[in-house]
């Protein structure tokens, strides 16, 4: 899509705000609709939009596939690791109240924040990885035929 000047300019303007909105949805999920699942998808959409307009090679420079694959696993590890941490503090698996025994609610806030971060990282990385996998295949239908 090299020849679409308007699309390229508008994409450049949009990618930043989309990423920012994803972060807002991620970390404001306790107070308003949102959370890791939605934020991850929105975060991935920014990269997919960039990839569709500027080409796969460009977006792979920004967000290389090896990093995407490792982040997908890292998110699950963050989530599971939170549970292991609460086990090490002598409580049950994924019981966030153990983090701050004096004030269980604070522990819950921390736990939810970290766990949602894990979900968000995994979902974003998975969506980008799936997009890369589909986009890297040689297409049967060419751009002119649409």
């Amino acid at each position: 899509m090299r020849h679409h000047l308007l699309l390229r300019v508008i994409t450049k303007l949009l990618v930043g705000p989309i990423l920012l909105f994803a972060l807002y949805v991620q970390f404001h999920g306790d107070y308003s609709p949102g959370g890791g699942f939605q934020a991850g998808v929105i975060f991935a959409v920014a990269f997919i939009l960039f990839g569709i307009v500027f080409g796969l090679a460009k977006v792979k420079q920004v967000f290389p596939p090896w990093l995407v694959h490792k982040l997908a696993a890292l998110g699950v590890l963050i989530y599971a690791g939170t549970g292991v941490y609460s086990l090490m503090l002598g409580s049950t698996y994924l019981n966030y109240s153990a983090f701050t025994p004096a004030h269980p609610e604070h522990g819950q806030h921390w736990g939810i924040l970290v766990v949602e971060l894990g979900v968000g990282v995994t979902v974003a990385a998975v969506m980008v990885a799936i997009y890369y996998a589909f986009a890297a295949r040689p297409p049967v239908i060419h751009d002119e035929e649409w």
Binding site: D30, Y31, S32, G35, Q108, E116
Partner: peptide, 8 residues
């Protein structure tokens, strides 16, 4: 938990 969004 004390989080306003019950779904979260």
């Amino acid at each position: 938990i004390g989080v306003p969004n019950v779904v979260t």
